[in-house]
């Protein structure tokens, strides 16, 4: 199991991680339950983290675990549990004809294109160590910090702005309107309902009626019953 002049431990680590990464990725796509998909995503993330250690990027491996596994996927799970959308999904039905076939064909063609192009033209002749040498006893944390806060200072600041924007955007999107506004909205919807047939809203109500029994949240069912 030697992969091109690699030692046995390295090769075995790589193969195991590759299995975990690809298996987790397939699990995300193929699992019919969002929570299972999230767990498979965690598996992939851990595989990638171990590969980072293998590539002597210890710091990034730990950051990957802290941010991805510790925050992002937990956020996913939190939303899944909060909304109660953790029910099984029917993967068999597909409303668009040939959607899957075409998607898979496109994806595989993309993969073939990358690998095929890389196979012929692969020679890494980038210049070595432009930003800084990734080495040293501290797993390159000092070099990484120097690069981040000097060479990449502008991108660093821009990402901080991006985070602020994301936070504000999330708060604006999530923030519940006050109790008064809620009442107004309900009234409007009730009026529209009683006014008579308006096509768009008819559709809406019929869709939501279908799903009322599937929904866990008590708030929504009560609201629907009142409107109907």
């Amino acid at each position: 199991m030697m992969l091109l002049s690699a030692t046995y431990p390295d090769s075995i680590t790589f193969v195991l991680c590759a299995i975990v990464v690809v298996g987790g990725g397939l699990g995300v796509v193929l699992s019919n339950n969002p929570v299972r998909a999230a767990l498979n995503l965690v598996m992939t993330l851990f595989g990638v983290a171990v590969l980072f250690v293998e590539l002597s990027a210890d710091f990034l491996a730990v950051v990957q675990v802290i941010i991805y596994a510790g925050a992002i996927v937990v956020l996913f799970l939190f939303v899944i549990m909060l909304l109660g959308v953790d029910k099984q999904e029917k993967l068999g039905s597909e409303p668009l004809i040939l959607q899957r076939v075409i998607a898979i064909v496109v994806g595989l063609a993309f993969l073939g294109m990358i690998i095929g192009y890389g196979w012929g033209n692969f020679n890494s002749h980038g210049s070595y160590s432009v930003i800084g040498v990734a080495s040293g006893g501290d797993s390159g944390i000092v070099e990484l910090a120097k690069a981040t806060f000097s060479y990449y200072l502008l991108p660093f600041e821009v990402t901080s702005v991006l985070l602020i924007i994301a936070i504000i955007g999330a708060v604006v999107l999530i923030a519940r309107s006050g109790p008064g506004e809620d009442e107004v909205k309900e009234d409007i919807s009730a009026e529209i309902k009683t006014d008579g047939p308006k096509e768009g809203h008819e559709n809406d109500v019929s869709v939501s009626e279908d799903k009322v029994d599937e929904v866990r949240s008590v708030d929504f069912t009560v609201g629907e019953e009142q409107i109907v």
């Binding site: 990034l60 996913f76 990484l144 990402t159 985070l163 999530i174």
Partner: peptide, 28 residues
């Protein structure tokens, strides 16, 4: 790792931040 250049690792840092922002807004 191949080019012995720490720039690639710094890029990952930014990708992580972008991923976090994307997930936050997407989930919202």
């Amino acid at each position: 790792s191949k080019l012995k250049d720490v720039g690639g690792q710094a890029d990952v840092f930014f990708v992580l931040v972008v991923a976090a922002a994307e997930v936050v807004v997407g989930l919202a």
